[in-house]
């Protein structure tokens, strides 16, 4: 037994070295291998679909991804806490995106819809500059509205299919050069009929109606403060509450100056960098993590 030990060690080292050497010598092989890894687009760890449904969705997502060179992924888990310690479903989706090596090309463009079944949380995130361009804040809003209806009614297959179909249409529009944004689909686009029901975002009249009351309150409060400060200046006769003027020079004599550390507390809050599409505005809001997207309940 003793004599075989060096041989076993040598075999083990060779088994580790050979694939590395092959990938180093042949980059295409490495790419192919990555492609192989990325061929799964639908991860159903919550058991939402039948085999047939799963195969259809997988095929559809792969087709869209390959065509657009932007990965369209769906992951269903029982509890996102198992995937992220950050404490929120959005970060869990970002962690999964990196963990699973999602994305196409150098920028790893892709979109991921994560469902966490325990508390019915969802998160939709996009990554990479092409994905950010294709899935604008407005476009993402349109997608939520489409798939959330199905998920609310536990129609998992229909919801994911809506998600993939919307992704396909938005990627197509982005490839055509005009991603879906607040102004709606480009005139004469084959997708005009799909998105005609969301004209509110470009209705600046309503934005004005919303903006004026929102601005009026802080403006009035600030004005009132200024006016009251000026009014206060009109009254100069006031009772004195202190006697600093009459403290004998250097007479403040401390006999105890004691600072004792007692304990430490921690708190944290989410930085609100992603607030969804602004009424009347367009584009995509990208967070510091490099992802755009939003989360909620279904």
């Amino acid at each position: 037994m003793k004599n075989y030990k060096p041989i076993l060690m040598l075999l083990l080292i060779l088994s580790l070295m050979i694939p590395s050497a092959v990938f180093a010598a042949c980059p295409e092989a490495a790419t192919d291998s990555t492609m192989e890894e990325q061929e799964i687009y639908i991860y159903d760890q919550a058991g939402l679909f039948t085999n047939e449904q799963y195969m259809k969705l997988q095929e559809q997502a792969m087709s869209v991804s390959n065509y657009s060179q932007c990965g369209v992924y769906f992951v269903a888990v029982n509890d996102y806490w198992e995937y992220s310690l950050a404490g929120d479903v959005l970060t869990a989706a970002e962690d999964i995106y990196h963990e699973y090596g999602f994305g196409y090309g150098e920028e790893r463009d892709g979109i991921l819809l994560l469902l966490s079944m325990v508390d019915r949380d969802y998160a939709l995130v996009t990554y990479g500059s092409f994905a950010h361009a294709a899935f604008t804040d407005y476009g993402q809003e349109v997608m939520y509205n489409n798939f959330l209806d199905d998920f609310s009614d536990n129609h998992w297959y229909g919801g994911v299919l809506d998600y993939i179909m919307d992704s396909e249409r938005m990627l197509d529009m982005a490839l055509e050069g005009t991603p879906l944004d607040v102004q709606g689909p480009p005139e004469g686009s084959i997708y005009e009929d799909y998105y005609e029901s969301y004209p509110d975002y470009e209705d600046s009249g309503e934005s004005l109606v919303m903006a004026v009351p929102m601005a009026l309150l802080p403006a009035a409060a600030l004005s009132l403060v200024i006016c009251l400060v000026l009014k206060r200046q009109m009254k100069t006769a006031r009772i004195q509450t202190n006697a600093f003027e009459y403290v004998v020079g250097n007479s403040v004599d401390f006999r105890v100056k004691q600072d004792i550390f007692t304990h430490v507390t921690h708190s944290r809050r989410k930085i609100n960098t992603s607030s969804g599409p602004k009424p009347g505005g367009g584009g995509t809001t990208v967070r510091s993590s490099g992802f755009s997207g939003r989360s909620g309940k279904f």
């Binding site: 401390f254 105890v256 600072d259 708190s267 944290r268 989410k270 930085i271």
Partner: peptide
């Protein structure tokens, strides 16, 4: 990451004079 983490140190401060 996307979180703002605050650490607060608490003290009992006494001044007499």
């Amino acid at each position: 990451g996307d979180y703002e983490v605050s650490t607060t140190h608490h003290y009992n401060v006494r001044r007499a004079g």
